[in-house]
Amino acid sequence: MSSPASQDVLALTAELVGLDSVNPSLVPDAPGEHAIAAFVRDWATGCGLSAQTVHGPDGRPSVIVRGGRGGSGSAGWGGRTLLLCGHLDTVGHGSRQASPAAVVEGRRLYGRGSYDMKAGLAAALVACRDAAAAGISGQVVVAAVADEEHSSTGIQTVLNHVWADAAVVTEPTELEVAVAHKGFVWTGIEVIGRAAHGSRPHLGINAITHTGGVLAAVSELDRELASRPPHPLLGHSTVHASLISGGSGESTIPELCTLTLERRTLPGQSVEEAEADIAGLLDRCGRDQPGLSTRTRTLLARQPLETNADEPVVAMMLDAATRSDGRPRVPAGLSYWADSALIAAAGIPTVLFGPSGDGAHADIEWVDLDSVLSCTRALTILACEFAA
């Protein structure tokens, strides 16, 4: 089935962008998802869809929208269930983008969250509505989730309430069908020194100076990772230093320097492998810098995604995307992490597909409006045929 994209998806995108939903775990006192979750719930019920609000352990809301007559596990009805997932929260407003209001210039819609990822969420909601109106015997479920930009508490809560035969996460993919993305491991390192007066440095151990050797070793590890065999869709694993702090005063030899590393992992690479690489790095540093003392811990880890190309949702999403704009597709990979990995870990075959644009987490963010229409067409085709 082909379906013209509803032009009202553009108005819905603008309304979603106009609702400030900055994640309070990233920006203290930010509003979070309460207002936008209430809007999505009311929009869905106003369209004749069912909507359920669920709250995570932090009390933040996610909304589960359902359309169709049944789906997997529903008494009395057949048909499959397709899960479409998008997040409600955004990062903070950039220095040049202080207002959440959407602004349209030509075929671009500007505003925080326009690209990452309220346009993709709007496309999912409209596809669910239109598939339900087409009379599918299965079910389309939209998970509009909280907290993707920090700890993914929203999708983890939603997965306690939802099961599906397949899923599409509508993160921005430039209208490519992604079947793989990287994971990550965040490692905290404390370099331990000994405080002393700045006029008597021989009595102390400078933790910041020792950290310099660790940073050089991190760069060496990144180069070594680039020499390992690449993933065919994702390239190489990487590691970089992302946060650093140390010292207590201008005239004090610093007794502590803390460093955070981010390792981007490939399918098949484990958290333990990443931890072993860091342990080996620090062991080499210790041999080069006598007296180096460190403590490490894994702060957060998320696994990569790799969906088998034989899964029906892969071929069907590729076909729907091609039919939406006439451009042939092949499976793609993404450098970033998304909630898709958690959905796949729950046993649901998952791909990613979303609109085009630029500026995720940047000062200026925009989404291409024509791509939003194409994305909506493709998701509607998929929803009508997968959940037929």
Rank of each mutant, 00 (worst) to 15 (best):
residue 4 P to E: 14
residue 6 S to P: 14
residue 16 L to C: 09
residue 21 S to K: 07
residue 25 S to D: 14
residue 25 S to P: 00
residue 28 P to R: 13
residue 29 D to G: 12
residue 30 A to E: 12
residue 32 G to R: 02
residue 32 G to K: 00
residue 40 V to G: 09
residue 42 D to I: 00
residue 50 S to G: 15
residue 55 H to S: 14
residue 56 G to T: 04
residue 60 R to L: 12
residue 67 G to F: 02
residue 70 G to R: 00
residue 73 G to S: 07
residue 79 G to N: 08
residue 79 G to P: 08
residue 87 H to L: 05
residue 88 L to P: 08
residue 91 V to E: 11
residue 95 S to Y: 02
residue 103 V to F: 04
residue 104 V to R: 14
residue 116 D to I: 03
residue 117 M to A: 00
residue 119 A to R: 00
residue 126 V to H: 10
residue 127 A to D: 08
residue 142 V to D: 08
residue 149 E to H: 07
residue 149 E to W: 09
residue 153 T to V: 13
residue 154 G to R: 12
residue 154 G to T: 13
residue 154 G to P: 11
residue 162 V to A: 08
residue 164 A to V: 09
residue 167 A to L: 04
residue 182 K to W: 11
residue 185 V to F: 10
residue 191 V to T: 13
residue 200 R to L: 14
residue 207 A to N: 12
residue 211 T to Q: 07
residue 211 T to A: 15
residue 219 S to G: 10
residue 223 R to I: 06
residue 234 L to Q: 02
residue 235 G to M: 08
residue 235 G to F: 06
residue 237 S to P: 04
residue 239 V to W: 04
residue 245 S to Y: 04
residue 248 S to R: 13
residue 254 P to N: 11
residue 257 C to A: 15
residue 262 E to P: 00
residue 262 E to S: 08
residue 270 S to Q: 00
residue 284 R to D: 15
residue 294 T to N: 01
residue 300 L to T: 06
residue 301 A to S: 15
residue 303 Q to E: 13
residue 304 P to N: 03
residue 305 L to Y: 10
residue 305 L to E: 03
residue 323 R to A: 14
residue 328 P to G: 12
residue 333 G to P: 01
residue 335 S to C: 05
residue 337 W to K: 02
residue 350 T to P: 01
residue 351 V to P: 11
residue 356 S to R: 15
residue 356 S to M: 09
residue 370 D to Q: 11
residue 371 S to P: 00
residue 380 T to L: 07
residue 388 A to F: 01
